[in-house]
Design a protein around this nucleic acid. Sequence first.
DNA 1: ATTGAAAGTATTGTCGACAATATGTGTTGA
DNA 2: TCAACACATATTGTCGACAATACTTTCAAT
Lengths: 218, 218
Amino acid sequence: MSTVKGIKQVPITIAERVFDSLCQAIVTGKIPAGSKISEPELAKYYEVSRASLRDAIGRLEACNLVIRRPNVGASVVSLSDEELLEIYTVREALEGMAARQAAEHMNEKELDELQSLLEMESQANSNDINSDFHYGIVIGCKNNRLKRLLCDDLYHLMRMYRYQLGRESGRTSSASKEHGLIMDALLDRDGEMAELLMRRHIRKSRKHIEMLLINKAS
Amino acid sequence: MSTVKGIKQVPITIAERVFDSLCQAIVTGKIPAGSKISEPELAKYYEVSRASLRDAIGRLEACNLVIRRPNVGASVVSLSDEELLEIYTVREALEGMAARQAAEHMNEKELDELQSLLEMESQANSNDINSDFHYGIVIGCKNNRLKRLLCDDLYHLMRMYRYQLGRESGRTSSASKEHGLIMDALLDRDGEMAELLMRRHIRKSRKHIEMLLINKAS
DNA sequence: ATTGAAAGTATTGTCGACAATATGTGTTGA
DNA sequence: TCAACACATATTGTCGACAATACTTTCAAT
């Protein structure tokens, strides 16, 4: 993947390859949230120099998966409940706009593909975010800056916590219905409606996660 | 400054110091848009090793001021007209949400300060973005993720093109009025209205820039 | 004269070593 | 017993050199 323009790229340099590996390891929790990143240890593990590893860590910081403090080192990000909810608020704003622009700019073929994606979604509960409805809308918005913000800066974090929290346990049915409504708005080329529905959809997800977190606390 | 959490930080490492210098040089156009970054040349100029300089370049890439291609090197970003307008669309979404949250979360003291900022704005047309109205609202939204996206990922680019285009020649009067309306909404704690007004305000700026670009083309 | 290949040059990517800073441990003093 | 200082250890930051890749120039062939 290699974090450029939100479009998966084949890693060219060693640093990019290590970045991809570390990214995967962090998202899947193999390197747990909050844990410290040891440069000598990981450099030895991946059999690369510390220079390449540090480059990779810099990229991880750029996509918000680690936090680096000067002269101290990097740690895997660990979001508090509030910080997790903050991301949903940002998503509401950005994906809402993405939906609006997608309604205006997606072509027929893309709309078709998105719809068939939606139909598959109802049965196969695929965990691959690359083939999910939200991702399809982001790609369809045709605003590269928006794409990059969502895909480069939030995408990985979202994957990480989706992994950790288990993909919003038990809201699939209502979420699917909401996706259907958004799809209709896209087909109608109704940007305003698409944005409105997308925002409401993400707000509901947020509320749902909020409940999960409250229950988890007990 | 040193690009962390949108809050100016004193540079600790050499890489951070060089990043700050390069950031400034790019924003002010001292290193012109589109120009190539020569690692050996700049390393010699700043009297640092290439390792530190490369670290700095990585940070520049993270805040979207340069684009790096593997085995080729980094170039200062150069936005097309469309790409510049894309940023306004993203700002509409993000700063709209920031205004909403600011209305809900800013305390009295912050509101006071913002208002006095607004009064100063009408006379002294300060070019320091750190003391500008939009920045104040972003800081006041209390959503760190939102702050970081705006301040780390878009702030520098905005400064750069504001510098280049000369701060939206001749829209200060109407823009100031719009700021006043937003301020009123904040004082009313009316988040929905604040978001609505902020979005309209940025949309108008976008239209204004669009006109400037069309005229420039002739 | 233009196109293509090949050699040469310059730049980027990677490495290992050293310096600077932070962390952990042990000792001393109150 | 606890606090604070000093020392020892480990990690990060920085450096210069080498390897790999890209770019430029030269030359030859059609």
